[in-house]
Nucleic acid binder design. Structure first.
Length: 469
RNA sequence: GGCGUCAUAGCCAAGUGGUAAGGCAAGGGUCUGCAAAACCCUCAUCCCCAGUCCGAAUCUGGGUGACGCCUCCA
């Protein structure tokens, strides 16, 4: 497949280090709050990347970290009069709830920064030994940016321009404004770990270098994250890892675009964000995932209520297709009929089209259109009038759901069958009323069920019902 | 200032040289006791200007507008 590589600014054929395997590192959240829908984008998009590679037979090792120690977590802990561990544990739990709601598979490993201090110290020590890093009296250790001749290669910034924008904050003892902290000497009341340079805690960038190396090796296949991480976070990761290990850090760098509100980037610092949780409570989780899939991952997405409702409506169409097909299959006769072979062949072909789009730098928008084309084909050719065989229905359903699953869609199943019996009873009463042409009573029962969010459909094979939102 | 992205119908969104995918919404129709769902039909010449070409939404140049990174951020 082709992947747009931020490093080369070109689409490149994806060639993994080990054929048939992919080692992917995704920058995870700093756990000091609920995630917002801007955070949800890389989570969903790179979950699709992983699902797609796996669907093509690739063995994926997917590592996503939790940054569980940093200034914001400490601040939050102080505000809540608790400690960093309580805060990070809480929001990791909430993250997992949201990720599961979005049908994002847990990573192969979810390492936490504070559980990888040894690896972090090991890298910093090597960098100090090689002269790429230096400790200062305050207990901080900085990366000597100017010594890295390749610094800036990811963000494609001339080093002079980067330098002119950088500032040395009050109290910092850097040699150069561009130098960044690998280790921060502890301040009173802050959580700290022992190090050769005194008590302190890791800088943000070094965590990812350490966790990537420990769980994926010195050179990985793909590193991904939001575009706002290109500089300085990913640039710094490259600098640390490559100066320490002497080999390329990651062959491919993938960066997703932002979620905007009124064309402005959604971010916690601007305060113009919606949490995944609050949107999910109103519209469900799946429309959020659909939104992420509906456009190309590098393009910006403007979020609004109108758009999320459109996503809900589009999903309804796909769900109807799935549910109609399931209902039909239950009532279909066994034994392939003449002419079904042709339909089977055609329907088997959608996967190839789907894959062709996905191969083009994860063109999920076009891949999704294949799913809709497939749905129309199913609706037109597999219905109560055409009376397809159980085998053909099963074939179509399996292939349709396979594609949906690569995108991570159509994962919601009817739950709560405690009231099924009562619903079935009412439906039977309505059927009897209809038979007696007592339309008023039939409609009354239908309205009653509707009030309980049960929507009916009369079909030649009987009454079909489902719970609506 | 440096680097970069984007501009396609009422809304969302693909397409990046050969005559505009898909979804939502809307209108008309078929089916239905009525519905629902489904199906059929209708619904754009691609921000502006100038070029290149037999041919451009797609390439080049120039505008206009929006946005991002260069500081914590997915």
């Amino acid at each position: 497949m082709q992947i747009y590589n931020t490093l080369s600014r070109k689409k490149e054929e994806f060639v993994p280090i080990t054929p048939g395997e992919a080692h992917i590192y995704a920058c995870g959240p700093t756990v000091y709050n609920y995630i917002h829908i801007g955070n949800a984008r890389p989570i969903c998009v790179f979950d699709v990347l992983r699902r797609y590679l796996e669907s093509r037979g690739c063995k994926v090792t997917f590592v996503q970290n939790f940054t569980d120690i940093d200034d914001k977590i400490i601040r939050r802990a102080n505000e809540e009069k608790s400690d960093y561990l309580t805060v990070s544990n809480k929001y990791i739990k909430e993250y997992k709830t949201d990720a599961a709601g979005l049908n994002v598979r847990p990573a192969t490993v979810h390492p936490r920064a504070t559980e990888n201090i040894d690896e972090i110290l090991s890298i910093i020590s090597t960098l100090v030994e090689k002269g790429y890093a230096y400790p200062v009296p305050s207990g901080d250790v900085y990366f000597r940016t100017l010594k890295d001749k390749e610094y800036g290669k990811l963000s494609h910034q001339p080093i002079d321009d980067l330098q002119s924008g950088a500032r040395i904050a009050v109290g910092e003892q850097k040699e150069n404004p561009l130098d960044f902290a690998l280790w921060k000497g502890s301040k009173p009341g802050e959580p700290s770990w022992d190090s050769p340079w005194g008590k302190g805690r890791p800088g943000w960038h070094i965590e990812c270098s350490a966790m990537a190396r420990r769980f994926l090796g010195k050179t990985i296949d793909i590193h991904c994250g939001g575009q706002d991480l290109i500089f300085p976070h990913h640039e710094n990761e490259i600098a640390q890892s490559e100066c320490c290990n002497g080999v390329p850090f990651s062959h491919y760098w993938m960066h997703n675009g932002y979620i905007n509100i009124n064309n402005k980037k959604m971010s916690k610092s601007l305060g113009n964000f919606f949490t995944v949780r609050e949107v999910a409570e109103k519209y469900g989780y799946e429309p959020i995932r659909y939104l992420m899939i509906s456009s190309h991952y590098r393009a910006p997405i403007n979020y609004s209520v109108e758009i999320i409702e459109q996503c809900r409506a589009a999903l309804d169409r796909l769900y109807h297709c799935r549910d109609n097909l399931r209902f039909l299959m239950e009532h279909a006769p066994s034994g392939e009929k003449p002419g079904e072979e042709e339909i089977r062949t055609r329907m088997g072909g959608y996967e190839e089209k789907f894959n062709a789009f996905m191969d083009d730098d994860l063109n999920t928008a076009d891949a999704l259109s294949v799913l809709f084309d497939f749905a129309k084909d199913i609706n037109t050719n597999l219905n109560a009038d055409t009376e397809p065989s159980k085998e053909l229905c099963g074939f179509a359903l399996e292939h349709f759901m396979k594609l949906a699953d690569v995108l991570g869609l159509l994962y919601v199943e009817k739950e709560d069958d405690t009231q099924d019996e009562e619903i079935e009873k009412l439906i039977a009463e309505r059927t009897a009323a209809r038979k007696a042409k007592n339309w008023a009573e039939a409609d009354r029962i239908r309205d009653e069920l509707k009030a309980r969010h049960v929507v009916l459909e009369d079909t030649p094979q009987g009454v079909k019902w489902k719970i609506s939102e």
